[in-house]
Structures are given as C-alpha cells and as structure tokens.
C-alpha cells in the first residue's frame, strides 16, 4: 500500500489576547501594534498539527506509512516551530519567507493598518496599509501560495490546516486551496483516523450535528474545534537526533508567484478598522450573600422579563 503524503499548513500569529485595552482603542487611528507580543500557534492549526501526528501514529500501527510535512508562511520567528515539528517526526518542513528574508512584507514590521498616509489625510479612519499588513488580509494570496507549494514542490495528497486564523477570521483559505487544487474539502474537522486501505475516517462538525465521513485522498481537511488542541513536545534527544534536518526556506518567486501582482488582484480589500464599544450599564447588584443578590436581580430585572421568555 502506498504511503499517504500529508502536508499540514500552520500560521504563527501574535497572541492577540496579550494586547491590552489601550492597544485596541488606538487601533482605528494607529493600527494594531502586534510586534511586541509573544507568538502563538493559531489554535486550529495546532490541532491540525497534532491530529496529523496522531494519524501518523495510528497508521503506523496498521502498517501504513504516513509522511508528514509542515508548511508555514512567515518570518524567522516561525523557524523554532518548524524545528519542533521536525523533532516530532515531520519529515518535510518548509517556510515561504515573509518579512526581512522574503519577498512578502512582514506584518510585524509595522503592525497592521498603520496606514500613516491615509490617517494623515483624514480619510475615514486609517487605511489599512497593504504593504505593511503582509498577508493578514489576503486569503486569496495565502491560498495560491499553499496550492502552488503543493503542486510545484510538495506533491502531497492530503492537506490538513486550521479552518480559520486571525486577524482576518475569514475561514475561506481551505476552500480556496481546494478550489485551486480541484480537491474536495471537509471543514470543521475534529478527528482523522486511517482505515488501513488508504481511506480515512474523518469526523466533522456541520451546522446541525457531527458528520462521520469515509474518504480517500486527495482532499483538504480544515480542522475546527477538535478536542485535540495541544501539540505534543519533542524530547531534547529527539531534537538532537534530527538537528541536522534542513528547513526549506522558499521565496514566493520560487513557486512562480509574483506576490505584488497577486495582492493587486485580491478582490477583497481592507480599508479601515473600527473600535467596538461594548459597554453597557454594568450596574452592580449589591447584597450580602449570593441569595440576596439573586433575589435583587430577580426582583429588579428578571421577574417581568422571564414571563415573556
């Protein structure tokens, strides 16, 4: 039985939850400054990376080989993650370079949406500066990089990636890649198991329940809220053993892509950021005990309302 060649795509993002209220408040005029916050794996991609390792383990028990590869688009800050993946058994590790060492502008070089020129011109809010925002709001370009990598370089037949990533939170990349490759795509995947005959058993949440599907690659699996949400850790020994393994760093041009032209073709263009005021009255209900407070809440807010529900 032939091996399954899997490629997992992942994104390393700034930890948006580590930004403070003041940072968000300034976003409409100054953009979001993410350069200084620590990096994390996009949560859905972390699930994808671990599910693929689990698939590989389970396949090995069935005597099937699963060859794992990992791809990310980003700057050097991605390399420690790739090294970790190599140590965990990912045989191929590649980065399409963005930022200082690539032909794609790097988000954290300036923070997203700094758009100083637009801001100074006083147009509604600051324009999102495409050059500075890298590929954060360019899902079509991200998808064409991934698809080109699969077709020109990796020749994988199972693509696993997170169903969505920030800051755009669009969720369209998996389907775009599927379209470009002509593959089917299953989204909100929560489990992937091998059947031993080249087929996979995949669990996916749909709008009205959990779908269990048997499929044969090639296909795209977009991972959603899987209960497997943390990547395992390689031992220092694993790291030492695989220390010499190479991480491929590619320029978009190596894949035959002209990123500037691709960006110009992007049909959905971000133009501004708005802050959100979520404040409500926040009336604090006093009382000595939970019971007192619950009683006051009921009497002054709920008694009539609840009748209508």
């Amino acid at each position: 039985m032939s091996a399954v060649r899997v490629l997992v795509c992942f994104k390393v993002t700034p930890d948006f939850e580590a930004l403070r209220e003041a940072d968000w408040a300034a976003a409409a005029t100054q953009g979001v400054q993410t350069r200084y916050v620590r990096r994390v794996l996009n949560c859905f991609d972390e699930s994808a990376l671990e599910l693929a390792l689990g698939l590989s383990d389970a396949a090995a028990r069935l005597g099937v080989t699963v060859e794992l590869g990992a791809l990310s688009i980003g700057g050097r800050e991605v390399d420690p993650y790739l090294k970790t993946l190599v140590a965990l058994g990912y045989e191929r590790a590649a980065r399409v370079a963005a930022g200082a060492d690539g032909d794609i502008a790097d988000t954290d070089a300036a923070g997203v949406g700094v758009g100083a020129a637009a801001g100074a011109a006083g147009v509604d809010g600051a324009g999102l500066d495409r050059a500075a925002s890298g590929l954060d709001f360019a899902p079509a370009v991200v998808a064409s990089i991934i698809a080109s990598y699969v077709l020109r370089a990796d020749h994988s037949d199972l693509l696993v990636l997170g169903c969505r990533s920030g800051p755009g939170d669009g969720g369209t990349v998996p389907f775009r890649v599927a379209e470009a490759l002509g593959w089917p795509c299953l989204t909100r995947v929560t489990s992937i198991e091998p059947l031993g005959d080249g087929r996979l058993r995949v669990g996916a949440m749909v709008d009205d329940g959990l779908l269990r599907v048997t499929l044969r690659p090639p296909c795209v699996l977009a991972v959603g809220n899987a209960l497997v949400s943390h990547l395992r850790a390689p031992t220092l020994k694993d790291r030492l053993e695989r220390r010499e393994r190479r991480i491929d760093v590619l320029a978009a041009a190596d894949l035959g892509l002209d990123i500037a032209a691709e960006l110009r073709r992007e049909a959905c263009v971000p133009t501004a950021l708005e802050t959100i005021d979520r404040r409500r009255r926040g009336a604090v209900i006093a009382g000595a005990t939970p019971r007192d407070k619950a009683r006051t809440l009921f009497d002054s807010y709920l008694s009539d309302l609840i009748e209508t529900l």
């Binding site: 948006f16 939850e17 930004l19 968000w24 976003a27 409409a28 979001v32 509604d124 809010g125 999102l128 709001f137 920030g166 800051p167 755009g168 939170d169 959905c268 263009v269 971000p270 133009t271 501004a272 950021l273 708005e274 802050t275 959100i276």
Partner: peptide, 11 residues
C-alpha cells in the same frame, strides 16, 4: 476581525 476585538471595513 481580530477575534472580535475590532471591526474591519472591507471593499
């Protein structure tokens, strides 16, 4: 966008 920290305007 940004996990609901902000609203983005797009064209």
């Amino acid at each position: 966008v940004y996990s609901n920290h902000l609203v983005g305007r797009f064209e």
